Simulated assay, not measured.
Amino acid sequence: HMPSVIEKLLCDFARSLTIINPEQMIEKAKGETAYLPCKFTVSDEDQGPLDIEWLLSPADNQKPDQVIILYSGDKIYVDYYQDLKGRVHFTSNDITSGDASINVTNLQLSDIGIYQCKVKKAPGVANKKVQLTVLVKPSGIRCFIDGSEEIGNDFKLKCEPKEGSLPLRYEWQKLSDSQKMPDSWLPEMTSPVISVKNATSEYSGTYSCTVRNRVGSDQCLLRLDVVPPSNRAGTIAGAIIGTLLALVLIGCIVFCCHKKRREEKYEKEVHHDIREDVPPPKSRTSTARSYIGSNHSSLGSMSPSNMEGYSKTLYNQVPSEDFERAPQSPTLPPAKVAAPNLSRMGAVPVMIPAQSKDGSIV
């Protein structure tokens, strides 16, 4: 019985080096670890040394293929691609047993691309490709109200993720009260924005927004309180008055501080101007007395005949400024008093000897 051509091909295929790789596309989230399988079998005819090489064809077609890890001569080499340095490892401790799979840890968006596993054990050679996609999970979801949540108003409920790979799916839910969403909101239950028209108090409650993509999800909560319209004019007036009062208070504080500083500065300047080595000024009275006293000694040697001239001279020598403040009395002409009147006033008569024409005493 001669074997058919198909049987021969199957036998040759069974004896050749083969890579068993069921997965050809892998999706993982940023920061996670990707397992890239590469399990192989060899035939009895494959007697050469075992060499395993992993290549990366980046998503950017402008970059050339990069070797990221190599097994050759029973040694592992990893220092090839700087972007994956320290993040790519063989998963098996015994690669020769037929497992050349690798792990890529802490995935980044730059890791997106096609990874190729090449296994060579002469004369057998085989290779397989795996496409890796790195997605970003939704995160940093923010729920907020755009507008004034008052009865009768129109406003919007918004749900915005900080990051997340497209496509993103949104889902709104009411978590309080009747847990039933208003009918007018139903068409927008799966959109990032819900438009609220003519709001009523029944809309009040707690809502959740969940954002999903193929690698993860995140959620935020929103509290909605629909209240009656407020007195906006009074609120604005109160805010203005409060601001003015605050400005007046600040102005008073600044003025008081400035005034206090000026007073302290003035006191310091006056204190520094006082000089202890300057003698006190002499009084005008002592000056006048010393002046008269200095001339008193000359009175004894003066005769009655020159007393009148001395008194006039002394009066003229006293500084006029010493007598500026003295009261001025009117000058009266000398009165002639008769002898009888003098005796009445207590005067004692004194006899003055008369002289004759020739000079003898009578």
Rank of each mutant, 00 (worst) to 15 (best):
H1S: 14
H1K: 10
P3T: 12
S4G: 15
V5T: 14
C11Q: 12
T18W: 15
T18S: 02
M25F: 14
I26W: 00
E32G: 01
T33G: 01
A34T: 13
P37R: 08
C38S: 04
T41W: 08
D44H: 13
E45F: 15
D46G: 07
G48Y: 06
G48V: 07
L55K: 10
L55W: 05
L55G: 00
N61H: 12
I69D: 03
K75E: 11
I76L: 02
D79E: 14
Y80W: 13
H89S: 14
I95S: 10
I95E: 05
S97A: 15
D99K: 13
A100S: 10
S101T: 04
T105C: 01
T105Y: 07
T105M: 04
N106S: 15
Q108T: 14
Q108S: 15
L109V: 11
S110H: 01
G113F: 02
Y115T: 02
Q116C: 03
K118I: 13
K121I: 03
L132C: 01
T133D: 10
L135S: 06
G140S: 09
I141M: 07
I141E: 00
N153Q: 10
G164D: 05
S165G: 04
Q173H: 11
K174H: 04
K174I: 06
D177E: 15
Q179S: 02
M181G: 01
L186A: 04
T190C: 05
A199V: 07
A199W: 00
T206G: 07
T206H: 11
S208Y: 00
T210P: 02
N213L: 06
V215H: 00
D218W: 02
L224Y: 01
L224H: 03
D225I: 10
D225T: 13
S230N: 11
R232G: 11
A233G: 03
G234N: 13
G234A: 14
T235K: 08
T235E: 10
I236A: 13
I236N: 09
G238V: 05
I240K: 12
G242E: 02
L244H: 02
V248T: 06
I250M: 09
C252P: 00
V254W: 12
F255C: 05
C256G: 04
C256P: 00
C257F: 06
K259Q: 14
K260F: 12
E264V: 12
Y266P: 09
Y266H: 15
E269Q: 12
R275Y: 14
E276W: 11
D277M: 03
P280I: 06
S283G: 15
T285K: 11
S286D: 14
T287Q: 06
R289N: 14
I292E: 04
S294A: 08
N295P: 00
H296M: 15
H296K: 09
L299E: 00
G300F: 08
S301F: 09
G309C: 03
Y310M: 14
Y315C: 07
Q317G: 06
P319F: 08
S320T: 14
E324L: 09
V337M: 06
A339G: 10
L342V: 05
S343G: 10
A347S: 01
V348L: 08
A354P: 03
S356M: 03
S356T: 13
D358Q: 06
S360C: 04
V362F: 05
